[in-house]
């Protein structure tokens, strides 16, 4: 699935990385616990989260993710946007709640690829 399709499905506003909307991603994960993302997630292209701090972007960078979606209309700070731009990560914000956003993406074919447990 292209990142542009994620934007459309989640009716999200792209906050940076608009030039990378053609990038393909094959799976996604959702968590507010960055520790769990680092421990259990592998090869996810997209991180959905309701947590807003710089470590969200840094964690996505560590895990080679292409896109971060902030749910519940949460908006990252300017510093976070700047960091995401440096790391080449597309950032968007959606008004949908995490559960609904995950459901929409799953139904559209974007599933999960986690180790041992679901996040």
């Amino acid at each position: 699935m292209k990142i542009s399709e994620i934007r459309d499905l989640l009716d999200a506003e792209v906050l940076c990385g608009a030039d990378q909307l053609d990038r393909e991603v094959t799976s996604a994960c959702c968590s507010d616990m960055m520790s769990d993302v680092l421990a259990y997630v592998k090869d996810q292209g997209v991180l959905l989260t309701g947590l807003v701090n710089a470590q969200v972007i840094r964690t996505a960078n560590m895990m080679d993710m292409h896109c971060v979606v902030f749910v519940r209309s949460k908006n990252p700070t300017e510093d976070m946007i700047e960091l995401a731009e440096e790391c080449g990560i597309t950032v968007m914000s959606s008004r949908l709640r995490a559960y609904v956003a995950c459901g929409v993406l799953w139904q559209a074919g974007l599933t999960s690829d986690t180790e041992d447990c679901d996040v």
Binding site: D32, M33, M34, S35, D36, L38, A39, L51, N53, Q55, V56, T59
Partner: peptide
């Protein structure tokens, strides 16, 4: 041990302190 943590709640609110750091 996975899951063992002495981090305070304020750290968990920041997305860390799940007791996965050292095992990871």
């Amino acid at each position: 041990q996975e899951g063992y943590s002495t981090a305070r709640d304020n750290i968990r609110n920041l997305g860390f302190g799940a007791g996965m750091g050292l095992p990871n």
